[in-house]
Write a protein that binds this DNA or RNA. Structure first.
Lengths: 337, 337
DNA sequence: TACCAAACTGTGACCGGTCCCAGGAAATCC
DNA sequence: GGATTTCCTGGGACCGGTCACAGTTTGGTA
């Protein structure tokens, strides 16, 4: 007898011995159990239970060539990551969607050029099966190198300036912006300003498009300023709008954080929200509900977004066709507008 | 000749062939290069460059028994994750610290009981080399099962109710709270209230201890309310304080989010901050600086926290001794107090 | 000159799965 | 009743690394 049970982790062959079958049969049970007799299957399942067997990721990965993990790739500069609750929502959703499929999420951050190089190397070395690309800017070289390396990728939001066929999951940016703009117009506002997102991001560009479309000939380019989705940039953009001339009677910000920033700037200027100026946001990021006053905003379907991204990426990995999924948003009317 | 180069990824043996040495020598070069001649080493390094070789995680992991990844384990309920910028800071820091060591971070979320079971199973199956445990509550069964399974673990913050020797990295909670309390007293405030964190978390308990110690016989238990670190709970706690009697002239909240919530509640009650009531936070979480008014708070050394946690965990994995690291915080005086 | 240690290198077993192939048993068909 | 198909099973090669071991060369010492 062994001097102790040696606490070695049981392998597939230990299970096979315990069940009185071959390791090949155990493997078949593990992978769906086709072509195994009911008795053999039962014996194996019992043996697995008795031995406390758990499959080794590494061994499986080596044999199959698949890693069983996806990368959650962030390319935003630091200060946005810190503050934007949006990323946390997507991250959590993705982690959950993967856990259900017993896969894992690897978080990759590619803010600095050095990090980008590392990340590209890591990803194309095949350490992950695919990439969930979050928030990319126009003509981001990272996308091109992922495409060049044939890495299965799904983008969150339509990648601008890349006419290649990458699968995407996005929300109806133009329609959402039109809905919110219409809401502000219906409330009787006439001088409506917009604090748009960066023009090299889909949210920055298309929300502005929707805003302009809905306003029609009432659109005034003087009433558009650009921010980076962050709170500070909302303050700055609002200040620029106030410097230009008479205050608008409503402001549509392309993110909740910028809306919060705009409200701060308006208050400093002695204006009340929503009495003097109505302010609407975008995202419904959790901050919106608890803000003072609670923000009127467009709700993005966060759970669906991450779930669909994961599902789509797995399709792509399995060799499925390109797809572009568009999800609807909903108007949430609270107190700010 | 092959019909095409077949795009198979080069292995260690391909490199060996290209360099004219054995695969064993290539492996030695890869692992520090001891006992290899300078010429062989140069030949191998050149061959690696020419072939574009990248080591396979899976194969290495299978051979060594180590996975090359750590888990970032979150046990908080959902709504806090969504809003608290604190987690994002720690997460990013940890990802960075690991990337420098060419290891990867696996994000695990154990909010619901079902998730907890999965996570426990996953971790003890050895799919990660160790666990960075973020924000655990008192007598969390998760900690005990990790200990029981001998999983190398480092906690962020002293785990309450677990007298076992787990390595920890924490900040000087008591000292930090005393510093802030002293600051408020020095500013002339006499009726100082506290919005504490959950009493079953180290930050909730020890910040209150420091507050009480510093106040001495001026301490009034009536002026203490508890929140869950989230914004909403700050609003609620402040409202409870206001209902009890005359408003305090200063409030010390155990998180920036709760401080922001307290300010919201005070404003709704018609009180000005800091003119009528001073409000101080804790964390310096990015929100603090951009808040209106900017928050006086205790800055936690986020980068150091995550870096030390990772370093400590790697020590533990390597068989090093238990350690309890305590890091200092710094008082940041802005406008709110 | 013989002997030995140190420095270097090659070989092959092994980690724990998957998957293919050959073969046996039972059921089906002519 | 014999041939063929269908179902099930065992065995071994293989994935791409690491590591222990044996063997070769070099230089120093008795």
């Amino acid at each position: 007898m062994e001097h102790s049970t040696a606490r070695r982790k049981p392998t597939i062959r230990d299970v096979a011995a315990a069940a009185g079958v071959s390791h090949g049969t155990v493997s078949r049970v593990l992978n769906g159990g086709h072509w195994v007799s009911p008795e053999a299957r039962a014996a194996v399942e019992d043996a697995i239970r008795r031995t406390g067997y758990t499959a080794s990721h590494a061994a499986r990965s080596l044999a199959t060539g698949r890693s069983g993990s996806l990368a959650f790739l962030l390319t935003e500069p630091q200060h946005l990551l810190f503050s934007d609750p949006t990323f946390a929502l997507l991250l959590r959703g993705a982690a959950e969607a993967l856990a259900q499929r017993s896969m894992t999420l690897v978080l990759l951050v590619a803010g600095t050029p050095a990090e980008r190089a590392n990340v590209t190397h890591y990803v194309s070395a095949g350490h992950v099966d695919g990439v969930l690309l979050i928030s990319s800017h126009e003509s981001d070289p990272l996308i091109d190198s992922l495409i060049a390396q044939q890495v299965p990728t799904v983008c969150c939001g339509l990648p601008l300036g890349h006419q290649t066929d990458i699968s995407t999951v996005s929300v109806d940016e133009v329609g959402s912006a039109r809905t919110m703009t219409r809401h502000l117009m219906d409330r009787g506002h006439r001088r409506i300003a917009m604090i748009a997102g960066p023009h090299d991001t889909p949210g920055g560009r298309y929300r502005l498009v929707g805003f302009r479309e809905e306003l029609g000939d009432r659109f005034d380019p003087e009433l558009v300023e650009e921010g980076d989705y962050g709170l500070e940039s909302g303050v700055a953009a609002m200040n620029r709008l106030l410097e230009k001339g008479p205050a608008p009677d409503a402001v549509f910000a392309a993110s909740d954080l910028m809306a919060a920033g705009a409200i701060t700037a308006l208050r400093r200027a002695g204006l009340r929200v929503p009495e003097d100026v109505a302010v609407a946001g975008f995202d419904d990021s959790g901050l919106a509900e608890s803000h003072e006053p609670p923000l009127t905003t467009m709700r993005q379907p966060w759970e669906q977004l991450s779930e669909r991204m994961v599902a789509l990426l797995l399709d792509v990995i399995a060799g499925g066709p390109r797809e572009a999924v568009t999800l609807p948003t909903t108007l949430v009317v609270r107190e700010s507008a």
